[in-house]
Design a protein around this nucleic acid. Sequence first.
DNA 1: AACAATTACGCACCACGTAAGGATA
DNA 2: TATCCTTACGTGGTGCGTAATTGTT
Lengths: 304, 304
Amino acid sequence: MNISHFELLCEVARVKSFSKAAKLLHLSQPAVSSQIHSIEDYYGAKLFERSTSGVTLTPVGEIVYQYAKEILRLHEKLEKEIDDLLNTENQKLIIGASSTIGNYAIPCTIWTFKEKYPCTQIKLEVKNTETILSMLANDELDLALLEEPIPKNDGNLKKQPVLNDELLVITPPKKPWVDKTSITLEELKKAPLIIREQGSGLRYMFEKAISGLNVKLPEDFNVIAEMGSTEAIKSAVEAGLGVSICSSLAIKKEIRSGTIHPLRIENAEFQVNYLIVYKNDKQLNNAAKRFIRFLAGPGKDPFC
Amino acid sequence: MNISHFELLCEVARVKSFSKAAKLLHLSQPAVSSQIHSIEDYYGAKLFERSTSGVTLTPVGEIVYQYAKEILRLHEKLEKEIDDLLNTENQKLIIGASSTIGNYAIPCTIWTFKEKYPCTQIKLEVKNTETILSMLANDELDLALLEEPIPKNDGNLKKQPVLNDELLVITPPKKPWVDKTSITLEELKKAPLIIREQGSGLRYMFEKAISGLNVKLPEDFNVIAEMGSTEAIKSAVEAGLGVSICSSLAIKKEIRSGTIHPLRIENAEFQVNYLIVYKNDKQLNNAAKRFIRFLAGPGKDPFC
DNA sequence: AACAATTACGCACCACGTAAGGATA
DNA sequence: TATCCTTACGTGGTGCGTAATTGTT
């Protein structure tokens, strides 16, 4: 039994479903199933009653759940106490992030993290993916937050999924877009398209995604502009100049206020997997390790 | 971090030595060293100050130690609560043991175990190794306690070391033995020797040990009797009829009272490794799992 | 020299993901 | 059929023991 077993158990008990817990913990569903089985095996008792609509704790499971929460609480307290005792060198953390995650997801994460570990000093660098990768290689960063796939990954990088998001086509809230909820790839190829610059993770991801469909950027599209920032692109789309592609994370506010109209691409999965990435051989300091556990671990979504 | 990490850490902190903790936990010393290193890595802080005369806790280590003890205490309480809730089927345990361990080590162990887990119903079968093995094969036993090496082990048995002891030559407390503290193999070959019957684990072990020295039983020895019980042999030796071989466990009392004189064999290591053995494919019940952890795990020696 | 911890290395096991399988509404 | 959990299987990472090394008294 280890701490992450307890975390997994608590997460499953909380959401009453193996598959939901798997998503939240960035694990496959069979992995969760197998973990729970081995916990049950360890204690020699069934902990969850399985049904078609999820799982519920058995009486024994309830006991284990209560203790697991208590043990986790203790352990968290332990880590905080260690935190207070460590020298400040261990508390500095430089994180790099690509635009989308750096601008729209991480700021709030850092805030939540600092609430939990107030001693940590975090510096955030938001650049495009290529730049972040070279900074990581030069040890200018402890950790990076990037999107999959990672270009030119020579195997010296360790990665861990932390967040799943969806790539959407963003359009002005007017005809012909505003009546649709989705768009075909053919329609998109003809639409006035604004894209990010070379070296941007979003662009790389989009290129990768469409290359599987035998379509190429920029030649197969009607590219009307190339811009170096998501905010610039959003402004252009809001102004009705064209359409673009971005992560749903980046347009939460605009969707709510109705200034941007999002569309799904038909018959295609444009999932974005955000990863926390670090050098395989690098000795991570305490703050970095904790930050990784904070993001990849359980609990309510650390992104906002 | 898992429960056994905490156990290991507490054991090391308690005895202030990697090597001593390794012995107590039935692990190699490098294994303990590596575990401690990974715990230190996990918390991002050095927990032990190493010196030539063992190790001491650092301030951070002291904190982790305190929490580890608390977590272990909680976890033990959890297991006890589960224990109370389980049905009685899970609480029955049939243990088989070969003579030495069955007669001299286990009775006290069972007593200690039942103090901790009063619901458990334990039945103990003491037979010779061969018989115990066949009972295990026929599912007449949950667990067996035997000495290494195990004859005819077809790989279907899982084993775990639980106790190390030393094989001694036992002699009457009179001339020519009483002045010596050790004996050569040549002297032993000429001495009037009493041995256990075929099928006895002790005999098998002794045969294995001397076969490495190109000596065979019974032809190379002066065997004057073969007996089916250690007690009978001890009585014979006490009566001055001859010498024999047995585990130091079995003659603690006699050494103390001076009725038997033990000798080491020169230039030879006669270590006995006692193992807990069970069928690889068998689903162990709760009591069995707990008993294994109780014996193999940390804490003060469960044998008396 | 003796003792304690570390490093190196090979092996076995375990946790994971992918893919296929069963059960239930 | 859709959803959820389980089973099967191949793979990579980790923990282990053995043996050699370092370091201190």
